[in-house]
Computed example of a mutant assay.
Amino acid sequence: MSELFYNAVPNATRVAPPLPKPRRYPAQKPAQVYLFGTCVVDLFFPEAGMDAIHLLEREGIRVHFPQGQSCCGQPAYTSGYTEQAREVARAQLALFASDWPLVVPSGSCAGMLREHCADLFKDEPATLKQVQALAERTYELAEFLLYVCKVRLQDSGEPVKVALHTSCSARREMNTHLHGRVLLAQLAQVERVEHSHESECCGFGGTFSVRMPDISGAMVEDKTRALQESGAHQVISADCGCLMNINGALEKQQQALRGQHLASFLWQRTGGGK
Rank of each mutant, 00 (worst) to 15 (best):
R192N: 06
E221K: 14
P46F: 06
V162F: 11
V151G: 12
L145I: 07
A185M: 05
C109S: 15
A185P: 00
C72Q: 05
Y34S: 03
V41H: 09
E47I: 14
Q268K: 13
R62F: 06
R86I: 04
L250T: 01
R192H: 06
R14H: 13
A27Q: 11
L55E: 02
M212T: 08
G49T: 10
K150M: 04
N245E: 08
A94T: 15
V190E: 07
V33L: 01
H195K: 07
K223G: 03
Q189M: 11
Q228D: 00
L243R: 02
R152E: 15
K21C: 00
M212L: 12
Q254I: 00
T166P: 09
L128E: 01
A8T: 10
L183D: 05
I246T: 03
N175F: 14
K223V: 02
T82L: 14
T78L: 11
Y139R: 04
F265V: 01
C149F: 07
L55Q: 01
M50V: 13
R152D: 14
G259F: 02
F65N: 08
Y25P: 02
S106N: 06
V190K: 07
D42M: 09
R90K: 15
V88M: 15
Q228P: 00
V63S: 02
G80T: 07
L262R: 02
I236G: 01
V104T: 06
A256K: 13
P101L: 02
Q255E: 13
V40A: 15
C72R: 06
G60L: 10
A31P: 05
G272Y: 03
L250S: 03
Y81S: 12
Y147C: 10
E57K: 14
V88T: 14
V151F: 10
M219K: 08
G271D: 01
S169L: 11
P22E: 10
Q28M: 11
C202V: 04
G203F: 07
R58K: 14
W267E: 02
C168E: 08
A85W: 06
L178Y: 12
D155K: 08
V235N: 04
V103D: 04
T207P: 02
L262M: 15
E158C: 08
L184H: 05
T224S: 08
V15E: 14
E83N: 12
S237N: 00
M174K: 12
Q268L: 11
C242Y: 08
A163G: 11
V160L: 15
A142E: 14
A142R: 10
P17L: 09
D119S: 14
A12L: 04
C168V: 06
E83G: 09
A188G: 05
R152Q: 15
D119R: 10
L183I: 01
C71M: 05
P18L: 06
A52W: 07
E191W: 08
H197C: 11
Q228A: 05
A85E: 06
L93V: 04
V210N: 07
L102K: 00
G248H: 07
V103C: 05
C39K: 08
L134D: 03
L19I: 05
